[in-house]
Amino acid sequence: MIRETHVNAFTLALFVAIPLWAVMADEPFTITLMTRAAVFAIAAIGLNVALGLGGLVSLGHAVFFGLGGYAMGILAHHAQTYTALAEWPLLIEGTKSMPVIWLTAIAVSSLAALAIGILSLRTAGVYFIMITLAFGQMFFFFAISWSEYGGEDGLSIYVRNGFPGLNTLDPIQFYGLCLALLCLVLVFVWRLAKSPFGLALNAARQAPVRVETVGLDPARLRLVAFVLSGAIAGLAGALFADLNRFVSPVMFSWQTSGEIMIFVILGGVGRLFGPVVGALVFVALEHWLGELSEFWHIYLGLLLLLIVLFGRGGLIGMVSGREAVHD
């Protein structure tokens, strides 16, 4: 058995070592794969705030991922066509600057998470799962019928957006940016889980009545967790869109929600590095199994089934031998 902190350190080391090797061996595709893993990891860390800390089984996180993607797509689209996003009441123009796009993505997805959270958190259990799923479909169909921004075909961006001082067209530089954000998000969530808010949220998952008796409002804690969770997933969505230089309604699809959830479960729910390990393993499986067989989803399905039925606490739980933190 290996200690969980060692597993975490090893994972982080992989995120540094593999791309460095890829630069030396001149394997840009490996860097792209690692960027994909880092971005998925950010999205999954976002979901893990709701799922692992808050106990909220949301099957609609594709909404926030997709909103982040479209925030990037729409801003960059207006910038590359030199058209204004809005002229009234005030002039808003598109932008190719990543920091502005990220902030917009975070703001838009937080607002959506607030609205969806207020409605969905009136319910619990299965209702919550189905409602978040249904909201995901609502955005999916809206994106498909929104012909101004590409409708079903999505939006393409010719040149990746810029970051001051970096050449984002160079794969390793863009990867470094994503890795830095991944680390920032990890530190944020780690601090969050240890903060009074995180402890209260944890307690609200395990014993809502007790939390209420000490004068805290579990519903409000959950709503804040849901909004933070959506904001992080939105940031990941903007990065994912920039990685592909393309957004489409697929980002809103319920399969995307399912995949983000798979990352979390594969690695281990409620563990800081669970989503990171899950995303890395998923991208590796996608790459290797996809080469072996066109029907690699069958093997993914079987693996997932085995983990749910027999593996307690995801891959990290199996390696480190500790029971799931999530009850």
Binding site: L59, M261, I265, W296, L300, G301, L302, L304, V308
Partner: peptide
Amino acid sequence: DHLDQVLATFALILIFSEG
């Protein structure tokens, strides 16, 4: 719990669809 049910049945969808 419902989370495990969602995931296991999601896995079944992958298996059935690809099958």
